[in-house]
Amino acid sequence: MARLTVTDAPHDIWVVAELKDGAPTPLTLEMTYGARMAADMMGFYVKVAVPGSDAPDAASTLIQAGADRITMIDHPAGPASAAGIASFSAWLNALSDLFVAQSPEFVMLGATPFGEELAARLAQRFGGGLISRCVSLRVDDFDRAFVGKRPVFGGEYFEVVATSGPAPQFATVLPDCFGPPHRDASRYGETERVALQLETGDQRWPPAGRVDFRMPSPKLKTARRIVSVGRQVGDVEAARRLALALGAEFAGAREATDEGYVDESRVVGITGARVSPELYVALGIRGDTHHTFGIQGARFVVAVHPDPDAPIFKQADAGIVGDPAQVARELAESLGG
């Protein structure tokens, strides 16, 4: 397949913005600020492509966060909607035309459904490197490369990856990669507008409609609190009552399905859901890697297990060596009263 190439010598760093309710998302502002820091070091301009519409204040917000030039790509239905998905290839083509003409050296996108799909397609189209899902990212001024750190095995550890190849080079970034942006109200920037040409899109792609759909375990993935049980829980009803008292979702390690404590859809771990609650209470779970893999995103982990050497304690922020059911009952009681 013929690859696209940029027109001029590559220069500048670009951000592909995403809007929500007419305003740039926090991740977009963070990327703009991150691009600003790289640009100051490299002598680049920061340019932001904004696919969307009805965003009168978006440009000034982005300029305050560090952008020098904004290109609004306008269409009444923004990309992050059912209609936007149907016209995805039109957005993709608009951005690749823009990049051919403007010759960016680096392009940053959000690690979101829209950003990741765009980034992978654009990187394949231009043949440049892509680092997906960065938790930290910088521009290496010697190699003129993106250098990004990204999670492996769901965040068990990380790998540091460098891009190479023809311009532009791409990266998608996760939230908190650069920290909150500094707003500078005195900054000055330019804004241009281009209209999205829907007919440039892939005509094979028919319209789509939004649906409400229930995943087998939708609640686990987004739950803020989870009470989870393993083989050593002792009294599973005590654990269920604790979940009720906490307003938590009830889940289990894989071995809890053997005991009939939870069904398949409520398993946390490698062969189940990966969760990221504020609070994860592990009752009678030993904590082997296949389970702890699923809880890397949890903010505060409580472990209760009779065996003081159970590996779960190495993952826990707070631990009690003892009878899980007993502790569950006491906890539920002190929360209730």
Partner: peptide
């Protein structure tokens, strides 16, 4: 076009 340079690690978790 993306070359792995090294592994990196999260800070040691405070033992519970």
């Amino acid at each position: 076009m993306a070359v792995r340079r090294e592994d990196a690690f999260p800070p040691e978790r405070q033992l519970g």
